[in-house]
Design a protein around this nucleic acid. Structure first.
Length: 301
DNA sequence: AGGCGTACCTGAGGGC
DNA sequence: TGCCCTCAGGTACGCC
């Protein structure tokens, strides 16, 4: 599931690959995947506009356009943003209707490389075509993801909380976010209106690193516990970005490549296996309707 | 307002 | 073998 480190990795790859490119058209295979204020087809709204840069806010990919508008993409669980480059040699004519009305079937095995635009990427719900033949595919097996064309005045970013890796996210700021809250600390970490970008994997990992029970009420954490957690959050997220994210299910970056952080996870998905710190058996419980992986022995504070 | 339950959607995996 | 059932996940929305 793409969380902050995965979305950051995708955004960096997209910024490198599509910045400066000009939109030509779009194909929308699933209308619910796209949200626009105006009724015109997405391709008509985008044609002629140019990508200024690609960035991130929380778990959202933001594709800034020179017109001042933004394509804001939420990948939810299984969404992917994949860049397909046209073949370098003499351009072969793309077969019309190469992508079916609901996108092509899944391949027998995951793609190791991204095929050129003439080969449809599996589960594509929206395809954005640039004038140079490059294609940006928004693919999503479970169809929870959304792509929104936001106007400059929309102010959507105000719904999202602090960026945990920003300089402004100080320990004092983090403490303020927890003060007086009775909700379990893990549920609070997942609340995008407070802190933006943390999902189930990194919430579990940060709480383990800080030796804090995930079901403890947020407002009850002592100052030392809050400090450990603050530092753990920033450390885990920064290390995960360095390793280009975590590929537990099917996350891949804009080049179709898997991340590396799944190889160094401490607790997520490891119920029944020994804790690497105290050797006791890790458990899976449910907190706020979410699977939660932790160590009952050494996460006791 | 905060906290909680449910809908959304599909593939994976267990049970028979 | 193959069908049926349940579950996982992040967020929006409705309810108390």
């Amino acid at each position: 599931m793409p969380e902050l480190p995965e979305v950051e990795t995708i955004a960096r790859g997209l910024d490198r690959q599509i910045s400066g490119k000009i939109f030509a058209s779009a194909e929308v295979f699933r209308s619910k995947a796209v949200v626009t204020k105006e009724a015109a087809p997405l391709g008509a709204l985008l044609a002629g506009d140019r990508v200024a840069r690609v960035g991130r806010r929380g778990k959202l990919v933001r594709i800034a356009l020179e017109s001042g508008r933004e394509l804001v993409v939420h990948l939810r669980m299984t969404g992917r943003l994949i860049v397909q480059h046209p073949p370098p040699a003499p351009p072969e004519p793309a077969s019309p209707g190469a992508i079916g009305s609901e996108g092509p079937e899944a391949p027998a095995s995951g793609p190791l490389a991204v095929p050129s635009p003439s080969t449809p990427y599996p589960y594509t719900t929206v395809a954005l075509d640039f004038v140079d033949g490059t294609r940006l595919c928004f693919a999503d097996v479970r169809r929870f993801g959304r792509m929104r064309l936001a106007e400059p005045e929309d102010g959507w970013a105000a719904d999202y909380g602090d960026e945990p890796l920003a300089d402004e996210f100080t320990f004092g700021r983090f403490s303020d976010r927890l003060a007086g809250r009775t909700t379990p600390i893990k549920s609070l970490l997942l609340d995008q209106r407070r802190i933006a970008g943390i999902g189930n994997i990194y919430a579990c990992e940060a709480l383990w690193a800080a030796r804090i029970r995930p079901d403890r009420s947020a407002g009850s954490l002592t100052r030392p516990a809050r400090l450990r957690l603050y530092e753990a959050i920033r450390d885990v997220l920064a290390r995960a970005i360095e390793m280009r994210g975590t590929s537990v299910d099917d996350y891949v970056d804009a080049d179709g490549l898997k991340g590396g952080f799944q190889n160094v996870l401490s607790v997520y998905g490891k119920a029944g296996r020994p804790c690497s710190r105290c050797n006791r058996t890790l458990v899976r419980t449910v907190i706020g309707q979410r699977g939660t992986f932790w160590c009952r022995s050494c996460q006791s504070r």
